[in-house]
Design a protein around this nucleic acid. Sequence first.
DNA 1: ATGAAAGCGCTAACAA
DNA 2: TTGTTAGCGCTTTCAT
Lengths: 354, 354
Amino acid sequence: MTEQPPDDTHTQPLNRRATLADVAALAGVSLGSASRALSVPEQVKPATLKKVAQAVAALGYIRNGSAQALASRRTRTVAALYPTLDNPIFAQSTHSMQQTLWSLGYQLLIASHEYQIDNEFALLRATVERGVDGLILVGTDHSQEIFSLLHQRGLPYVLTWSTDDSSYPHCVGISNFDAARKLAREVIAKGHTRIGLCGGAIDRNERARGRRLGILAALKEARLKMRKDWIFEAPFSYAGGRQAIQYFWSRKQRPTAILFGTDLQAIGALHQCREQGIRVPDDLSIIGFDGIEEAEMMQPALTTLRIPAHEIGRRAAHRIVALIEGTPVEPEPPLSEMLLIRESLGQVSSTNQR
Amino acid sequence: MTEQPPDDTHTQPLNRRATLADVAALAGVSLGSASRALSVPEQVKPATLKKVAQAVAALGYIRNGSAQALASRRTRTVAALYPTLDNPIFAQSTHSMQQTLWSLGYQLLIASHEYQIDNEFALLRATVERGVDGLILVGTDHSQEIFSLLHQRGLPYVLTWSTDDSSYPHCVGISNFDAARKLAREVIAKGHTRIGLCGGAIDRNERARGRRLGILAALKEARLKMRKDWIFEAPFSYAGGRQAIQYFWSRKQRPTAILFGTDLQAIGALHQCREQGIRVPDDLSIIGFDGIEEAEMMQPALTTLRIPAHEIGRRAAHRIVALIEGTPVEPEPPLSEMLLIRESLGQVSSTNQR
DNA sequence: ATGAAAGCGCTAACAA
DNA sequence: TTGTTAGCGCTTTCAT
């Protein structure tokens, strides 16, 4: 009798992690069938399916995603690259994006470069290296390197948040220019003529640029001019807004209204006004941009413009999956923002006509 | 003369994506040397290194992470599983976690189950399948399934946010029980005897549980009793806090102070009080928990307790890498929280002694 | 519907 | 220090 190598497969647990080959062996089918049972069950006979399922359960088998990705050249993962996650407006879109992708059978890989815009390429490179089937980027203004890499690798991508400065058909967002102009017109309609502006860095950020230009356009329409020293640049944070108030209030000439690039800044500004005893909106009107929930909670409540962040997340998710899977998609219809006129924007009265 | 297959390597770009073999060929070295040049450059002669680097640049070569992971069984990726990203306190820790991991050569994969706690296992499974070297979880209270999977796969993990209810040596967080008791003592010290509590669901959430128990302990010490109908459970959101105020103010007996499970709820409550004309802190004191930046911006400013979210992110990142790489680590020293006593907590006066 | 077998692109052990 | 080579665990033709 020939000496047989021991075959423990059916009698005791493996001392190593179960592979698909183990599953196949235990189920008494070939490796190919086991693979198909998991990936394309409709091509497999129910009986086979059942045997495989039992073996999977018995072994506690979990697919090795790396091997699967290597063999199939697909990862079923989409990456979203954000400037930061520290702004509630981005966190909002993340949520619906993840839910939607999950429901479509994809995972979401989230990363952020924290406004170190030069890191964006490094981040993208690392993400591509790790392996993703598609990307969702924030904004339309990215370095040439980035687009080159994307094209060179044939990676589908969706641009989100804005449609400004781009003719790419897969932009899911609003026109920041139009939105900001609309908001500025409201401010002007309240009688303001002395209007300041606090934006963020506009380098590689067409959102900040579009907002600034939209405001300037509205002023121009109304034959108002923007003083150079009433354009202030600050970080996109509460602290940035505080700095802006300190800056404007240290000037000899002060505006009666300030339009901020983000709600985060505007809320910081509101807080700083309280510290300095500046009455809002009597002494100064403050206007945000984004429409985060916190804006409504402030005292006075912040006037702002709501960006449909959840809708952006949802649509971007559907779109990137369509691009990955080659489903035809129409060019994206524009999304619409909503004005939220609240207490922090006041009518100009004799009080602040100095 | 034998017919030779054309060798375009040196003359024209490849029509397919470059592999490490292409790099090696172009550099005139072996596959192994090329691999080492990228992974363990210190083991390679500078001249070789240079040739490989040039070939990489010339071909625009990017490593295939899946293949690398398959061959090496390491992904250099850590996943962090959050309940939600829609709370600024989590977004904060995410930031420092990512920075730290990146600096240590790891990528961060972020996912959240949005308080669908039953999804946590599915999320973990998908994450493990995709391939990660280690995990960072929020909280100590997870299902048995989760710990089983982690142990079965030999995956290192760190538990964050709290040290309550766990003897696991790799917990990076605070004692929610102690912290909440400390906070409640402050409230009692201000003369409050009629104290309400608004927490969140305590199922699979030892943080919510610890906070509730800490408050009850402080009351007991002071020989105060907690009325059953003054314990209200609401979602961890602004809306949840609003509901709580509606609930408490519809009771015949009302508390003079309410302790909330999170700042999000407390801020929603502050807002609802304004809506209903309830004066804070004259009619009611409101106390939060977390110490998010927004707490300070409110009018009145919210009394709360700061959780060192950034520190948690940083330490968890260092720790998980140490566990992955087998570096010895001490058990985690406890982190400390900080009381932030602000306007929303008032002294009890005759006014609210009904 | 299933089986056999050839890779996917890389790492790591081994030999030189 | 470098080259050679055998896998890593899976998918996917191609037969059957």
